[in-house]
Amino acid sequence: MEIQKEREAFEAWFDSRYDAHFMQFALDLDMYIDKHTQTCWEAWQAAKAQTVPEWFDYTKQSPQMDGNYQIFIKGEQITAKWVSRFGFSDPIEGDALRQELITHWAMQPQSPKAQEPAND
């Protein structure tokens, strides 16, 4: 299972960041190391989900929802629009793309959300 290997690598990295003195100090202060590790893991997964798209082989699976996606066509990564009945097309011009040239697709990364100004 790929996620289990990633979790083990993360925990090894996390443990290497803190030496035995810190861990004992944290335990003496009754800090929740396991909860802290879990929080860091969840933050890692959330950040990874936004920056590393999961690619799907287009010859084996098509998107399920209409919308914009990242695709590889002729070895080049571009944004394309998916419409279930028609396949991928240019998102601006609307011209159909040659489906047989598309090898992979991925979800479009989410745009960052604007933060509200701080009231300092």
Rank of each mutant, 00 (worst) to 15 (best):
M1P: 11
M1N: 15
E2D: 11
E2W: 10
E2S: 08
I3C: 11
I3T: 13
Q4K: 13
K5S: 15
E6T: 01
R7M: 11
E8V: 08
E8L: 14
A9H: 04
A9Q: 08
E11K: 03
A12M: 07
F14L: 03
S16G: 05
A20L: 07
A20I: 04
A20M: 03
A20C: 04
F22Y: 09
M23S: 06
M23I: 11
Q24V: 09
Q24L: 08
Q24S: 08
Q24A: 05
F25K: 01
F25M: 05
F25V: 00
F25L: 05
L27H: 14
L27K: 15
L29T: 02
M31I: 08
Y32L: 12
Y32E: 13
I33L: 01
I33Q: 00
D34S: 07
K35D: 13
H36G: 10
T37M: 14
T37K: 15
Q38E: 15
Q38Y: 09
Q38L: 13
T39E: 14
W41G: 05
W41F: 07
E42A: 07
W44K: 14
Q45H: 04
Q45Y: 00
Q45T: 05
K48R: 11
Q50M: 14
P53W: 03
P53G: 07
E54Q: 15
E54M: 13
F56T: 13
D57Y: 05
D57S: 08
Y58P: 06
Y58Q: 09
T59H: 11
K60Q: 12
Q61A: 06
Q61L: 06
S62A: 14
S62H: 15
Q64K: 13
M65L: 11
M65A: 11
G67M: 02
G67F: 00
N68E: 14
N68T: 13
N68P: 02
Y69Q: 01
Q70F: 10
Q70E: 02
Q70R: 12
I71Q: 03
F72M: 12
F72R: 12
I73E: 02
I73C: 04
I73D: 02
K74D: 13
G75D: 13
G75E: 11
E76T: 08
E76V: 08
Q77H: 03
Q77F: 02
T79W: 00
T79R: 01
A80L: 05
K81R: 14
K81G: 06
W82G: 01
W82C: 03
V83S: 07
V83K: 04
V83D: 05
R85F: 02
F86I: 07
G87E: 00
F88W: 02
D90Y: 02
D90N: 09
P91E: 01
I92D: 06
I92R: 07
I92K: 05
G94D: 03
G94I: 04
D95G: 08
D95N: 13
D95L: 10
A96Q: 06
Q99K: 07
Q99L: 06
E100M: 07
L101M: 05
L101E: 12
T103Q: 03
T103F: 00
T103G: 01
W105S: 01
A106P: 00
M107I: 12
Q110C: 10
S111H: 13
P112R: 04
Q115A: 09
Q115S: 06
E116S: 12
P117F: 04
A118L: 06
N119K: 10
